[in-house]
Design a protein around this nucleic acid. Structure first.
Lengths: 200, 200, 200, 200
DNA sequence: GATGAATGAGCGTTCATTCAT
DNA sequence: AATGAATGAACGCTCATTCAT
């Protein structure tokens, strides 16, 4: 009872509960009752913090995407060697996805659960993230260090591959997160690096 | 009334309707009424063909996975050059996913909607499919033609990347399905081919 | 079990239950559960017959107004002596209101519970009924048998007065319905008849 | 802070907001939140001024009825010519209803929303008001200046007719309130005045 | 006096499912 | 095979009310 904001925690508890439930079973399969139960309040209490189930979903998705962009821009410098930046992007993406798999999964899977307004906002944020990767690929292509047939296709393919890590990785398995990130970075660099592929 | 299956069409119509609705919006978000409406019958009529909504889902997923395995085994020979077999696998996977994206998407996404019995059966079928790829990777590794750090990780990563094609490809876009399959095959081969990577 | 349409009765039972409950306590104060309970089914069963609570209200109001107009036109001939037609109108209105007070009360009181679409349709039906009275008053005015200062005001005032009978009349009291209808007819005729008022 | 009731305004604001909302949409259809919103406070704040929604309703209805009786007794002298008193009653009733239609409407319509205690008190007040009219009618009947078949019926009929003015009158229309009051007074006097009707 | 957060009950509605017809 | 009507449970949400701050 010494903490300065003792009851700001309910809203955050709702966010956490909803996040993990939505990720686990999908937005339509999760009821407000279940979220409330996990938080330890009654169903109606959620509505003191979020106007609707949909608003809660949009809040989670938008919050995640904004945080993701901020973290990306902090981890991957805007300029510099595209090869270095791409490796950093891959490692960032994999590690972020393994650290916060729920946020990531929801942001990609529950677009279909969004009503038009939220969908528009989220699509724009998603596009901004993908744009960061496309910029790196284009820079490498211009400098002749990446062998890329089609930048947009390559970008989507890479993101899908990297995101897919969440479908099989489990903490405590044979590999650490860092090792997985390194393996993915190696895979990606090897598949694009003109230094190697051009020699054939 | 001469043909052998004169009115088996309702069951197939239900399958088709459910398949596309489950893929589009997810199993929990689709109601039996919507499926019936799309078929042109009433809600209760579905139960003449399937015992429950869950049974319908299991039927679709299991049917798809069995057909997928049959098609894979027809497209990719069991023995022979691992590089050729991998390229065939990649092209098969991408083309099958672009040809039947709904079946594929459901089989991967709706595992969480399965009740224990169906889940066990489906996981086994899914494992069998992934096993096909692991066998190819292992063969190439044994023969020294693939540079692979970790076969299971590589297999999961490849499948995730390939499956991800469905998240962005649309017919009528800049690239044909065949072109996309070729690009993916090229990406994969380049990232594994020891002929090239070993030179570094 | 001899009756020819044994189960068409549920819909009518819902109508009857809703009618009396809406009249007694008002549309917003009545729950679908209460209606169902009175019918002897479960709450959800109502939705096999009416799409929504609002649809049920509109159905009742529109049905009543259409029946009212049909009955009025059967009771009061279009042409003829305006004095006779007015007396018939008054008696019809009072008796109809005393015979079916619930329908009448809902149709006048629950306009505010209607959503825009239903409101438009009901206002038109209500206007048509009032128009019948205005036509009679105008005819009498033209023929010089009614002393009327302002036909629309007079019409609204008369209808309000006649409708008001439902706020105090109870069967089994000192007066029969017929007697009340006669008293109201006498009151109205006396207040308009130029034969008498003109002598002053 | 000099005036005697500096911040009593919130309570009055609640009364005003509740009055107009109850009149417009009916007691059961109005939520405490809506009332609070219109006042500019939060939902719970109302309970600093009224113990419950029901208490608020009773307060409004009882306050109105007491004020109505006071105003009536100020406008219509207890003794004197029944014809003059009746005309005064009619004009008073119509003008009061057009001036404060919300109070009047609630007092007549929301009796059904009252719980037993409040209902008893309100019925008595309502009876007292009607009694005033009955006294006038009886006096006129005794003096032979009114032609009345049945005093209680006539009283209820008159009040219903007069109250009905609120269902159609709108300020800014073709007639002023005073004109409407005059028309109603004329209608009523004409329908009862023995001077005219007795000649037939 | 007012607020923010909570509650327990209830709302209208939809759900998957059953079954007599 | 299909329907229409029913069910019991659950849904997202709102309600009047309480109370510590």
């Amino acid at each position: 009872m010494i903490s300065g904001h003792p009851k700001a925690s309910t809203k955050q508890a709702i966010e956490r509960a909803a996040l993990s439930l939505f990720a686990e079973r999908g937005y339509p399969a999760v009821s407000m009752r279940e979220i409330a139960e996990r938080v330890g309040i009654r169903q109606g209490g959620i509505y003191n913090h979020f106007g609707s189930k949909q608003a809660l979903l949009v809040h989670l998705m938008e919050g995640h995407m904004r945080a993701l962009l901020v973290a990306l821009d902090a981890s991957v410098p805007k300029g510099g060697d595209p090869r270095q930046r791409l490796a950093q992007f891959v490692r960032f993406h994999v590690l972020y996805h393994l650290t916060q798999p729920d946020d990531v999964f929801i942001a990609y899977m529950e677009l279909r659960s969004l009503e038009p307004d939220g969908l528009t906002r989220l699509k724009e944020l998603r596009r901004a993230y993908e744009e960061r990767l496309r910029r790196i690929l284009e820079a490498g292509q211009r400098l002749g260090v990446f062998a890329i047939t089609d930048v947009p296709v390559q970008a989507m393919g890479l993101i899908a591959m990297l995101t897919g890590v969440t479908t099989w990785y489990h903490d405590g398995g044979r590999l650490t997160r860092e090792e997985v990130a390194d393996i993915y970075a190696e895979m990606v660099m090897r598949s694009l690096d003109v230094e190697e592929t051009e020699k054939s």
